[in-house]
Write a protein that binds this DNA or RNA. Structure first.
Lengths: 368, 368
DNA sequence: TTGAAAGCGCTACCAA
DNA sequence: TTGGTAGCGCTTTCAA
């Protein structure tokens, strides 16, 4: 079906020369031994060639290379790393969902750093399920990944202490470890949420709704604290009718916003607690005659190209991923300092939706 | 720093009972042997417990479990899988870039299927670089992943024939194998592009620009063929000034569209060849007074919430990923049929931007 | 420059 | 129900 132009000579396994073990080509993948047999050298010599060790005669090496090509031999890395126990040149990334752009960007940044260090990345999703978190981490440890970057779901990470002691590096991302001391890269969630809500208050809003995922997710709890603190500082009480948690995805957020709009006293502004929530809000708000104010936590694609460009609390997502990965490889390189926790600052990007005033009808509907 | 409530009794390694080898706890991860020593059984028995094999006395099993917990033992999966040679319960996914929503959704779908089969997923990016493609595939093979789903970049996959023969399942996604016969899940690229351009022609457009990535990427070439065929059928020639290839990301697309608008005879419509291009186009078009028609290949988030909702050529992305993964696991389950190639159909979703007429000024600017 | 032997952590097979 | 032995594919140490 497909023509190959590779040289086909010397196809027999036991070679013509001396009377070596002329055995059948075994089924399955060729091993060092198969190559050795074909090249008529000891399998240790093949190992040397495969690992580019110096003390091999050029002529011998060439013969071995030829045999490797002929057989399509590829070194079994799992077997190699059985020796130096650790290793595997693989790291793990545990996130909630790759299809969420936040995590997707994190994954790319981490993979990029991993690649620079010649490591492969195994990405697994938890879907915010604590049990699944344990399962996937276990699976990663079983494969002896050298390190794990985890966006944690559970609230007790003592089970990871053993792994740390056993030499697996672990870095927490976006959310801190619970009941464990370990490296972490976090955001200023409380501060960012305060920025958002303060901003809306400054425009004169008093009925500010909040739309988010489960409150037992760390970032949600923190951002809610920021929301509360902001209202509190303004002398306002939290109106439970305006608080909508439990939205897992944009669909849920759409439903939540629709409900909010049907309230006898609807909000004049919304604080969307992450990029999924913001997108959900926009889906609804885009259809309204009169604009509602909106500030979202996390920037997102096309936020600036919408009918009413969305004001967001932003930060460098890629940097978050990169920093976590660097911390990890730093540990793998032998760093034994006390666990470090970095907090990345946020800043607000005003685009229009956050500057809408309550009940305003003359708002600018087109981008500048 | 962190308190543990785990039982700490029997901490010594050689137990109190008979005079067994009372050796030092070795550094590094505990092995079957360490557990056996502590539980005072043979390490084969520990192996049985770890693998839930039936013939172990409950009492013995409990003692072993206790030792496992005490030591924080985790089975070394790489060592296990050395036996049944293949295995590793891992598959690979080779894509261009996880941060591209198309690939992110594919990755999620593939991971989901993998998880159902208790497999882990290693995701690697090629950044559309053929050399990197070979490198990462090699890295995956070295780790003996059982199968690989690849969105190929290179134009010669003969090097994979050996891997197929050696038992590694390979499924091509989005782009077909070149000089190799293998499973594939593709889109109707030519047909989809024709739908898009025919649609624009039907609105009366005659100057239809096309914005895309490198023409040597299969999907781009195919979609361009569709563009050509559509124009050809309408008796129109391709105007090279309106053809903009070489856009890797949204930024490049933005620049390309800006250039197009500065043309002495600018286009009245644009065909964006993938989701990245569409987003770039929207970024520019959102700022214009007079709308330009736009049809994009690939649906994308918020396309319906934009000032001028975007008409797209759509299809079920998740399904594409799922089908590829199912094909792969089907092979791993032993299916030896001739390679299969599936083509997923596309359909147009009219949202407004594709229904803009040339030079129209009275276009509906708000969503219904 | 090359090879032989031991062993990484585990499972398979057979014996007790 | 348990344990011993061999060996997966490779690297390491030492000898030739």
């Amino acid at each position: 079906m497909v023509q190959t132009s590779e040289p086909k000579s010397d196809r027999a396994v036991g070679r013509q020369g001396n009377g070596q073990v002329d055995q059948q080509p075994r089924p399955g993948r060729p091993t060092l031994r198969d190559v050795a047999l074909l090249a008529n050298v000891s399998f240790k010599t093949v190992s040397r060639v495969v690992n580019n060790e110096p003390r091999v005669r050029a002529e011998t090496a060439e013969r071995v290379q030829q045999a490797i090509r002929e057989l399509g031999f590829t070194r079994n890395y799992n077997a190699s790393s059985l020796k130096h126990s650790l290793s595997s040149a693989t790291i793990g990334l545990v996130i909630a969902d790759v299809a969420n752009p936040f995590f997707a960007v994190i994954a790319r940044a981490v993979e990029e750093v991993a690649r620079e260090s010649d490591h492969l990345l195994v990405t697994v999703s938890t879907a915010e399920d604590a049990e699944r978190e344990r399962d996937v981490i276990e699976a990663l440890v079983e494969r002896r990944v050298r390190g794990i970057i985890v966006v944690p779901v559970s609230h007790d990470h003592r089970f990871l202490r053993r792994e740390l002691e056993h030499g697996t590096a672990i870095v927490f991302l976006d959310r801190p470890p619970a009941r464990l001391s370990a490296d972490a890269v976090l955001l200023d969630n409380v501060g960012g949420a305060r920025q958002a809500v303060d901003h809306l208050l400054a425009q004169g809003h008093r009925r500010i709704a909040i739309v988010g995922d489960r409150l037992d997710v760390y970032t949600m709890a923190e951002r809610y604290r920021g929301y509360q603190a902001s209202l509190d500082a303004a002398g306002l009480a939290v109106d439970e009718n305006l608080v909508r948690f439990g939205c897992h995805d944009t669909h849920d957020a759409v439903a939540a916003v629709r409900e909010l709009l049907l309230l006898p006293e609807p909000p004049t502004a919304i604080f969307a607690m992450n990029n999924r929530m913001s997108v959900g809000c926009v889906e609804v708000l885009a259809g309204l005659d009169r604009p509602l104010a909106l500030v979202g936590f996390d920037d997102f694609e096309l936020a600036d190209a919408l009918r009413l460009p969305v004001t967001v609390v932003s930060y460098d997502v890629e940097d978050v991923g990169r920093r976590a990965a660097r911390l990890l490889f730093d540990r793998l390189a032998g760093n034994r300092d006390a666990p470090k926790s970095l907090t990345v600052a946020t800043h607000i990007i005003e685009r229009g939706s956050g500057e809408v005033r309550p009940f305003s009808t003359s708002v600018q509907f087109d981008p500048p």
